[in-house]
């Protein structure tokens, strides 16, 4: 808890939620993206369509799901379709406005790794793998990524590129024929990074209140590009904080028991 009465994680989730336009069709990953997407739905973006890769379309879960296919999602969805259908007809079909992903590692061009730390064939840490992420990152019209910023996560070179962002920068993503325009923002516990319009290198464009630019630089495993004018993120409003905390409290109560 900072002196301001909110945590860095709360700021990250709230800043992420604000990026979601009301009415957008959102393909959402589990964890931080799901929390932010539901906060957006409960605040400024009630008409946002949440798609989870379990095939639940228009889910309105009363608590945050622990998995991407919890009963709270299917029971509140406008439609539940099969896995081949959600990936082939909806995602590959070009019907998703915004993909929202987390990651274990990210590089300067917003490529992400959720597969292994170390060598693929002899990894020091085996991570869960790709799931839907490569195609979400490729085919959504745009992509948001959220993860905590530190040198273990923000690395000079990924051990494995699970999902493509702006590849090697410049027009390389376009040349590789990835359909969507790729990551448009990376939201961390320290600030917001956006790709440079030409080089596509992630550039620090906003710092959360009370975070020094040096902290962001020290927490990045490459020489971080800083925008000429770095904005200060608006602090959480009382309403945003109250709704987020209520959501987490309901979720904790629901997950403490046997789920019934």
């Amino acid at each position: 808890m900072s002196d301001n009465g909110y945590t860095a994680d709360e700021m990250m989730t709230i800043a992420s939620a604000r990026m979601i336009r009301n009415g957008a069709v959102l393909f959402v990953g589990i964890g931080l993206p799901s929390a932010a997407a539901n906060l957006a739905r409960l605040t400024h973006a009630p008409d946002t369509v949440l798609i989870y890769e379990s095939g639940t379309i228009g889910a309105k879960p009363p608590v945050l799901p622990l998995s991407i296919g919890d009963g709270e999602l299917s029971e509140t969805a406008d439609a539940v379709v099969s896995i081949p259908e959600i990936f082939a007809y909806y995602l590959q079909g070009g019907r998703v406005d915004l993909g929202f992903l987390g990651a274990a590692q990210i590089d300067r061009f917003a490529n992400i790794n959720t597969t292994v730390i170390g060598d693929y064939r002899k990894p020091s840490t085996r991570l869960p793998g790709a799931g839907g992420a490569p195609e979400i990152a490729a085919s959504s019209k745009e992509v948001l990524i959220t993860l905590r910023q530190n040198k273990r996560a923000f690395v000079k070179k990924l051990d494995f590129v699970t999902s493509g962002g702006h590849m090697e920068g410049g027009d390389s993503r376009e040349r590789m024929r990835l359909p969507g325009k790729g990551p448009t923002a990376v939201i961390t516990d320290l600030g917001i990074l956006t790709p440079d319009p030409v080089t596509k290198e992630l550039t620090l464009t906003s710092l959360h209140p009370g975070v020094a630019v040096e902290k962001a630089v020290e927490s990045t495993g490459w020489p971080l590009q800083i925008a000429a004018h770095v904005a200060t993120t608006d602090p959480p409003t009382a309403n945003e904080l109250a709704i987020l905390r209520d959501l987490y409290a309901r979720t904790a109560r629901a997950h403490a028991g046997n789920g019934n």
Partner: peptide, 28 residues
């Protein structure tokens, strides 16, 4: 990736030799 496995099962059910998708672009 999920999209690839879904295509592989659908191809199996369809008795086709392979599934096709706009996938794995940019991935290792």
């Amino acid at each position: 990736a999920h999209a690839g496995m879904a295509a592989a099962y659908a191809a199996g059910a369809s008795h086709l030799p392979f599934g096709v998708l706009r996938g794995y672009l940019g991935s290792d």
